[in-house]
């Protein structure tokens, strides 16, 4: 899958999505990600959507689902890098993504996760 990639960074999973991602790609991503969370037992996921020029209701819904699945696997999800125009459009669509945590950038998300203890002593057991 080229349209999205999952990297392990500082003990969290970083998901980066490119602008030409298709619906099929993003559903594949959802599956691949939940598998990686379970395999690595990580507690934090960062989804970088700064490359996305639009987030429509489908992608918004997938982001919400992905977060719910991650939470069931004991990981919190941060959506980072949302563009101003995308944020305004989502609000107009009535999609506030209440399930997701948000942060400006990856490093902001990592800071927040450190503060909430998700990274320090990251791996369980």
């Amino acid at each position: 899958m080229n349209a999205a990639a999952i990297y392990a960074v500082e003990g969290v999973l970083l998901v980066s999505i490119t602008s030409d991602i298709t619906d099929t790609d993003i559903i594949d991503l959802q599956e691949a990600l939940s598998k990686r969370i379970a395999d690595t037992e990580c507690r934090g996921v960062v989804v970088d959507i700064s490359a996305l020029e639009i987030v429509d209701t489908f992608v918004g819904r997938v982001l919400a689902q992905l977060t719910s699945v991650a939470r069931l696997l004991d990981a919190e999800t941060y959506v980072v890098g949302m563009r101003p125009a995308v944020a305004m459009t989502l609000v107009e669509l009535g999609m506030y993504l209440p399930e997701n945590h948000t942060a400006l950038t990856l490093s902001h998300a990592l800071d927040k996760m450190r503060q909430s203890g998700l990274i320090d002593g990251l791996r369980r057991g």
Partner: peptide, 28 residues
């Protein structure tokens, strides 16, 4: 084809001098 449609409409909006916000809204 959905991706192609989005990118073609985005180009058309750019050509008519759209602001980023208006382009994002319509492409969505």
């Amino acid at each position: 084809d959905v991706v192609r449609a989005r990118s073609r409409v985005a180009d058309a909006m750019k050509e008519c001098g759209s602001s980023e916000l208006m382009q994002t809204r319509f492409v969505t």
